[in-house]
Design a protein around this nucleic acid. Structure first.
Lengths: 227, 227, 227, 227
DNA sequence: AATGAATGAGCCTTCATTCAT
DNA sequence: CATGAATGAAGGCTCATTCAT
């Protein structure tokens, strides 16, 4: 990126570029996004992007820093204000939900990043992400110690949340398509906010320590079962 | 695709191409995958791919049909052999887990597909996927009628499973990196199989109807909460 | 071409290939014609063409030899049977017309050949063509000596005939299109045979020695005329 | 094509590209012309052609518009200044001759176009051509009404002119080859300009209404004529 | 600060041709 | 005699990037 853009005009240009780029990367991925189109949609000349920001890679980094890198502190602080483990967990989910609602393209970018094993992920982003998951780790441990949570791997829970939200957030249209084409009986899809609330409840349910009597015995797989 | 290759030699060639292509698409995505490289890695001439299969799009379609489309029937049959709703749900999760273990690249492809709103999804794949999710829909409805499951949107549950498994399955390296870079206390990541089992339990937990007394009251968001 | 095809089956195959090839070369030209398509339309395997005939260039040569190379003798003999110069000229035109009607694709091939300055023309064909034009030369000279023809360059007359016939023969559809799109007043196009007859008359008219009184004085170009 | 290039430098580039392209299309045809070679001969990068013009098809269209489309008005105006039908007809021929002399490649392109039934002909070219032939139509009708022309199909006359000129203009070398290889007595080929003048006279002769006495009776085809 | 023009490298695809059977 | 499979060599087109202004 260019050394401190002087004019506010330039800053506006940069912001416009970044905002366009987020969407482009989310829609098409790193390889699929076209500098040409980003420039056109941001209403700048292609060369302007190179002048202000640099590479395609640099642009991608800038986008990730903007949408995720700066959020770790906010996560830590917000979750920290919860009083019980469950409240903390709910706050954690809500933080994620809110960040997704603010940057609806983020989970899409992140799905791709996961798929490519973080190939394009800038180091800073990785660090920030680690800090975020750290909060969840502490929360789960606290709940376990207090006897209200079962044991659960934090990373797993995190990706369960993000996975479900991510898939769901941007995929209503696709889902509807699936449902329509396979003529299966299916309840209508709810709004993202409603789904987010449902996920919040489900996640709490997931890790909650339940009375022993409520647990059904797992059924052992049949002999010769191909599944 | 060419109408059924005559010689078994040709079939072997096709298989080799497809196997290479799955990985390529998973690694780099549809836009990022290079026909050149697929050919080289499959040890065929590039033109051979076009001779046998056709397009990049056709190749992609063939890959998805190979790894997912042909397994829908297996899903339906296997889940159907479960006797209780919970057993069916566990079977469903296990089916997904096994398919992922057999085709570890599949969830990666699907993550990208979700991210691009199914832009490259061939129609048949949509149909196949719809059939698979249909099984889950029936299972959840059955459990709900029997009073052992809470209400839950099937698509949501499906993507929760796939999301968590998908993110997790191929991301151990990335996760380790996150964990390492975040200076937090963190339990070591378990193997995929162990995680899969954990997810199976968690999912069952997720939809299980719990006695009212065990449910903690949700805590309302504070005023001034930066949400 | 292969050394004397033994079986009659092979000869039939070859004929089928050639007939298909004429059309293909006429429609798309040498560069535009596709061996693949010729094979498919001739209902043979692509390799069969190579087995029996050889190259794309060899195929083209074979086509020209078939449709034009062997016709010179016929031209010479037929025209020779005319008793007056005018009759000979009419016979010449008719020979061309008939050859075109027998091989409707020939003028198309020839137009392209003219356009590329005979780049692909095999030597034998050039010789044959020279002999054909030779007949016209003799006819015109004879008419000139008898005082019934004006002086005219034979090659020019020949290409006038072929040009008009060639353009016209295969272009009714295009012409109709032109006429339609440019909403000009235009008589309906006649059939090829009628046009051929018209051309025959016109050509005779063209070279006929007319009484001096019938000739209008050519009008000198205006000063400053940009034309 | 790009919306009006800003700099004159770019305009020069475009002109260079177009000029090279005319020749390439004339020499090798649409299918045979290579963008690679056009770029090299025009001394631009291949991508520059795509930047300024677009497609191979667009390039072809631009070429035709440059060499023919823009001259329709000139045709109409110039011919219109003729006072008698014969003068108009002569002007028409001269217009064609001059356009060919200015763009010697044009008739070659048109020959191929005729051969492929206008497969690549851009719509606008069809319109332009229609306008041009429209002038001839009016001229011939005028002459017919005045009793100085015989009835003749305009399109036929046009293609007779273009055909003869076209074949002849670019084929001196081929013709010489024919003449040389055919061991016949043959007058030496004249220059293009001389031929053009000859064609002008011939064409006028062609449509001139001649006194009945001057017309030789057409000789009926003999029985058994191999026609 | 910003842009139109230009480019080198590479990508998807096609095509004439050959090989093994 | 004929064919399915395979391939090397382009060919058209795109794209990230740079240059000159």
């Amino acid at each position: 990126m260019h050394p401190t853009p002087a004019t506010p005009a330039a800053q506006a240009t940069i912001r416009r570029i970044l905002e366009t780029a987020v969407e482009a990367f989310a829609e098409k991925g790193f390889a699929g996004a076209r500098m040409d189109e980003i420039a056109k949609r941001a209403k700048v000349n292609k060369a302007t992007i190179y002048y202000h920001i640099g590479n395609k890679a640099a642009l991608y980094s800038a986008v990730l820093h903007e949408t995720l890198g700066q959020r770790a502190d906010l996560f830590i602080e917000t979750v920290g204000r919860g009083r019980t483990p469950e409240e903390k967990l709910r706050r954690y989910v809500r933080c994620i939900v809110e960040n997704i609602m603010r940057y609806p393209s983020l989970p899409r970018i992140f799905m791709r990043e996961a798929a490519s094993l973080g190939a394009h992920l800038p180091p800073q982003t990785a660090t920030d992400l680690g800090r975020i998951i750290g909060v969840l780790t502490q929360t789960l441990a606290e709940g376990r110690r207090a006897g209200v949570f079962v044991a659960a791997t934090p990373v797993l829970i995190h990706f369960m949340i993000v996975g479900a939200l991510g898939y769901y957030a941007q995929m209503e249209s696709v889902i509807q398509r699936f449902v329509r084409e396979a003529a299966v009986d299916h309840p209508p899809a709810a709004s993202f906010e409603a789904s987010a609330k449902e996920i919040e409840d489900l996640v709490v349910n997931t890790v909650r320590a339940v009375p022993v009597t409520a647990i059904a015995r797992p059924i052992p797989a049949e002999k010769g079962d191909r599944s």
